[in-house]
Write a protein that binds this DNA or RNA. Structure first.
Lengths: 123, 123
DNA sequence: ATGAATGCAAATCGTTTGCATCGCA
DNA sequence: TGCGATGCAAACGATTTGCATTCAT
C-alpha cells in the first residue's frame, strides 16, 4: 500500500475521532472524491487497520481497528455515540454455552441503543 | 389497521419462517408490489408486531416480535442463520456496569458471525 | 362513502464500477 | 516507468415518495 496524502489524512481523521465515522462525515472533512474514500476504507478494512461498525441506519461507519475491543451506546434521539466497556467479553460468554452444533464463532457485533443523559432529560 | 390479504399472508410467512427474512425473500413468496411490503412491514414494526434485524449486509431482515428475545449465529460463508440462547441476558449484564453517565439503555443488538458446521468442514 | 391499503413509476441514498488519468516508489 | 491511487460519471441495490386507484369497514 502506498503512502498517499489521502490515506494519511483519512487515518488522522479516524484517529482523532472519538466515535465511528460515516463516509459522509469523512467527506465533509476531506477534499477528495467519495469513490476514493470508499476504496481507501475498503483497503484499510482488508488490511485490518480499520473496522466497520453498523448502527441502526443504513450507512456503515468506520473506526480504527487498533482500539481495544469495545461496544457503543447509541442515542436514538441525537445520534451521539459513546463507548461502553462490558465486564465480561461477550464472546467468552457465548463460548461457555454448548449447543452450537459445531458453529465456529469468529466475531460478534453488539451495540446498545437508548437515550443519552441530555436527551432523556429533555424528552 | 385493516385486515387485508397481504397483511395476513405476510404474517403467515413471518410465522412459518424460522429465521429473519429479507424483503426480497418475502417478495419472492408474494405477488404484491414491493412498496406494499415495505409499507406493511413498517406499520407492523411500528405496531410492535415485527422486529427489524440487521446482519452484515445492507438489507434489513424481519422477524416476529412475539418470539422470545434471542440472538443469531450467522454463517459468513453460506448466510445460514440459527438462533443462539445466551446464559445471561446481555441487557442485565450491561446494566450492572455503572459508568454510563445517565445513559438510559432501551435495547441492544447482538449478533454472532462465524462458520456453521457444514462450512467449517468444507472450508 | 371514507380513509386506509395498493400499485406503479420515479426519486433518493449509500455504495460500487468502468475507464481514463495521475503520481508514488 | 509501471502499477497503485484518484476522479468523474454512470450503474446499482435497497428503500422511499408522489399520486392515482382500489378495497375494507
Amino acid at each position: 500500500m502506498r503512502q498517499t496524502k489521502t490515506r494519511k489524512k483519512l487515518l488522522a481523521l479516524l484517529t482523532s475521532a472519538r466515535r465511528p465515522i460515516s463516509v459522509a462525515d469523512l467527506l465533509s472533512h476531506l477534499s477528495v472524491n467519495k469513490t476514493t474514500v470508499y476504496r481507501q476504507l475498503d483497503s484499510l478494512v482488508k488490511a485490518g487497520q480499520v473496522t466497520e461498525v453498523r448502527f441502526s441506519d443504513r450507512k456503515v461507519r468506520y473506526e480504527l481497528a487498533s482500539l481495544p475491543h469495545h461496544h457503543h451506546l447509541v442515542c436514538t434521539a441525537c445520534d451521539s455515540v459513546r463507548d461502553i466497556d462490558l465486564p465480561d467479553d461477550i464472546e467468552s460468554i457465548a463460548s461457555k454455552f454448548p449447543n452450537r452444533d459445531g458453529f465456529v464463532i469468529q466475531n460478534h457485533y453488539l451495540e446498545f441503543f437508548g437515550l443519552c443523559a441530555k436527551c432523556s432529560r429533555h424528552e
